[in-house]
C-alpha cells in the first residue's frame, strides 16, 4: 500500500517522547502549554486529555487516510478531513467520559474543547501523513507524542511552582520568564538527541 519507514514502534515511541518532543523541538501546542502550566492539577488533566486525543486521532486518521482519502484521491481535502476527525473524536470522547465517569468528566471536561484547536494534535496527524507511518507506527507515534507533551507540561508546571517567588526583571514577568524556562527545558532535551535518530 505504501512504504512505511523501517523503525521499530518501541523506538518511535521513545523518540517521540524524548528526542523529538512535539513541544520542545516542534513548537506544537505552545499556546495552551503556557497558559495552563500555571497550575499543577490542570496540567495533569490537560496532559492526560491530550495524550488520549492524539493517540486516538492518529489511529482514526490513519484509517480514514489510507482507506477513504487516498483511494478516492481526496488528498487536497486532507486538512479539512483531519480537522473533522479531531473534532469528532473530541466530541465523542467528551460524551463517553461524561457517561461513564462523571468524576473524570469534571476534571477533564473543561480541557476537551480546548484540544480541538491544539496544534499538537493536528501536527502529529500531519507528521504521520507526511512520514507515511504504518498503522502500528502511527498509533505509537500518536501516544508517544501525547506522552511527550504531557511530560513537558508536568515538568514546566513543577518548575514554575518552584520558581514562583523568584525575583525576575519586571518586563520579563509572566509569559517572558516562562518562555525562557521552556527554552532551557528544550536545551536539556537536546541532550537526548544523540540517543535515537528519528526524523
Amino acid at each position: 500500500m505504501h512504504n512505511a519507514p523501517a523503525i521499530s514502534p518501541l523506538i518511535l515511541f521513545l523518540a517521540s517522547i524524548l528526542t523529538s518532543n512535539i513541544l520542545l523541538s516542534n513548537f506544537l501546542g505552545t499556546c495552551s502549554f503556557i497558559s495552563i502550566s500555571k497550575d499543577w492539577k490542570s496540567s495533569f488533566g490537560l496532559g492526560l486529555a491530550v495524550t488520549l486525543v492524539i493517540g486516538l486521532c492518529a489511529a482514526i486518521s490513519w484509517i480514514v487516510l489510507w482507506f477513504i482519502v487516498m483511494p478516492l484521491g481526496l488528498e487536497y481535502l486532507s486538512f479539512v478531513i483531519f480537522i473533522i476527525v479531531i473534532a469528532a473524536v473530541v466530541q465523542v470522547l467528551e460524551m463517553i467520559i461524561d457517561r461513564f465517569s462523571p468524576a473524570l468528566y469534571l476534571s477533564l471536561g473543561i480541557f476537551l474543547p480546548l484540544i480541538t484547536v491544539n496544534c499538537a494534535v493536528l501536527g502529529a496527524v500531519l507528521f504521520m501523513q507526511i512520514r507515511s507511518y504504518s498503522f502500528i507506527q502511527a498509533v505509537t507515534f500518536g501516544f508517544g507524542s501525547g506522552a511527550g507533551w504531557w511530560l513537558a507540561i508536568m515538568l514546566l508546571a513543577a518548575i514554575r511552582k518552584r520558581t514562583e517567588g523568584n525575583p525576575v526583571p519586571a518586563g520579563l514577568k509572566g509569559t517572558g520568564i516562562t518562555l525562557v524556562t521552556i527554552g532551557f527545558m528544550a536545551m536539556a532535551f537536546l541532550g537526548f538527541s544523540g540517543m535515537i535518530a528519528v526524523q
Partner: peptide, 16 residues
Amino acid sequence: APSAFFLVAMALWGSN
C-alpha cells in the same frame, strides 16, 4: 529549537 523560545522571550521583554 531553544533559541526561538529565548528570542521570543527577549522580544517580549523589550516590548514590556
